[in-house]
């Protein structure tokens, strides 16, 4: 079981987690691995908590990542990092986009957004890094490319060859959004180099 790379991508419905998981999966396919991706459609996509699971290796059986076995958790939103934290290995890596999307109980003022959530995650998982992908994407020309900034960071962390990731981005992103997304990806790759 240990020879499989398990990547959990979490966020809020509508944040673009699907494209991120598709890029990672495509790179793994191009590298010749067995790959499985699973995500749940339907009601959860209406602003609810969403998760994509990407697994690759020589032979992958379960499409879902067993609890406690994810190598990397890539969270598009801070609470959604905390929500799925138990799926991570004890020494797993957490990459968190420094983005806050209030869920309904917070929006309505019933409960407070846990401001210290990143500190609490970092205490439990020492290999936690935080990135402001939203700001980086704006600098690249489109806030929507935040997901590809995060793909850049992730691909560096799990050791995917950048040229292969760029190839996958070219396959999966519409031509008119390509330049912005490639720039966003490169910023993501550079970001993790300097941390």
């Amino acid at each position: 079981m240990s020879q499989i790379m398990n990547v959990l991508i979490t966020g809020v419905g509508g944040q673009g987690t699907l494209l991120a998981s598709r890029i990672i999966a495509q790179v793994a396919v191009d590298l010749g691995y067995d790959v499985k991706v699973t995500e749940v459609h339907g009601m959860a996509q209406r602003g609810g908590s969403v998760v994509s699971e990407v697994r690759y290796g020589e032979k992958v059986y379960s499409p879902t990542i067993p609890k406690g076995q994810a190598d990397v958790l890539l969270a598009f939103e801070k609470l959604e990092a905390a929500r799925w934290l138990d799926y991570l290995k004890p020494d797993g890596i957490v990459i968190i986009n420094d983005e806050r999307v209030d869920p309904l109980p917070v929006m309505s003022g019933k409960v407070k957004y846990p401001e210290d959530i990143i500190d609490r995650i970092s205490q439990l998982k020492p290999k936690t890094t935080v990135a402001d992908a939203t700001q980086t994407a704006i600098e690249c020309g489109n806030v929507k490319a935040a997901n590809v900034v995060l793909v850049g960071i992730l691909s560096k962390v799990i050791g995917l060859p950048p040229e292969k990731v760029e190839e996958a981005i070219r396959k999966l992103v519409p031509p008119k959004a390509l330049e912005v997304n490639l720039a966003a990806f490169r910023r993501g790759v550079d970001w993790s180099v300097h941390q």
């Binding site: 609810g48 908590s49 609470l79």
Partner: peptide, 11 residues
């Protein structure tokens, strides 16, 4: 990890 965080129901 017993992190007590608010739920995020669909809307």
């Amino acid at each position: 990890s017993q992190l007590d965080i608010p739920p995020r129901p669909p809307l």
